[in-house]
Amino acid sequence: MTSTEVRPTPSTELRTRTTTEVRPTKRTSTAFPPSLSAGPTMAARSGERRLLLQRLPARKDGAAWARAGNPVGKGLPSGAGAGRGVASRVSSGGSGSLSLLRGVKGPRLAMGIFSVFVVNKAGGLVYQLEHYAPRAETEKTFSFPLELVLRPHDERLLVAFGQRDGIRVGHAVLAINGAEVSGRFTADGKDVLEYLANPAHYPVSIRFGRPRLSSNEKLMLASMFHSLFAIGSQLSPEPGSSGIEMLETDTFKLHCFQTLTGIKFVVLADPRQSGIDALLRKIYEIYSDFALKNPFYSLEMPIRCELFDQNLKLALEVAEKAGPFGPGL
């Protein structure tokens, strides 16, 4: 793996909503924010909870959800919930992975393992690694009127309708005339929708792509999975069921291994990638070797250990080579 590109999050909304600020650090391998020293306040955390609750289904389900929900902030030592800061590290895939890529046949470029999450027993994200993130971005020049329906969603502008030329429904507006947008606003602070409604600004070149997860979203998704895991167990038609161990979609499989102590290791991989169960055990081993045994690591806190990082990346590469992505396929 080569050095990782650390990209400052351009969105300002993050900062207004919570104090868990993401600041790219100089270190290339572990890019965690100094959230421990900064120490998100209780208010910030409750802000995050609110964020999660908004996303839950209809309000009437609130009661049921609260019961199964994330217990962060309930009777935890004040530091426990604080371990929820994670850097948004947008890795563009290492050079070591490229050799593997060449072996892949088929229309979709796929790598074995996309990302790894470690979630503490309170549902807080303590580690996240983007191992391989396929980037499909499309730039197109448009004339007025715009043949796309754009819709503001979560501080971004998404394509709601009008899929064409590689621009897909759900893609976000990333840049206008080469200048990156910041959420729903252009680089110089204009509302993108208003800008695009003005015929004088055409022809305009817009770049679209899958929206990247902000660090705030990663925190939210981790605690969301934490709740889903618990509900999956509660709704079991059979007694003695665990939570969600494997979740399958058409584009990825999520594998989750929960230790007896309640730590969850989550791996997102290509649906065709095999050997993930063994990998999850291996990650557990690496965690106990390089995080737990490190006297300077505090339990339930973000993992910022160089050795953990290195060994994890190594394990991922080994697993990918063993999977059905070798040159033979």
Binding site: G240, S241, E245, E248, T249, T251
Partner: peptide, 15 residues
């Protein structure tokens, strides 16, 4: 990580 078509298909627990 990439655009989805069918989306969610299934999940499994230990049981």
């Amino acid at each position: 990580p990439v655009d989805m078509k069918d989306g969610f298909l299934s999940f499994q627990t230990s049981k």
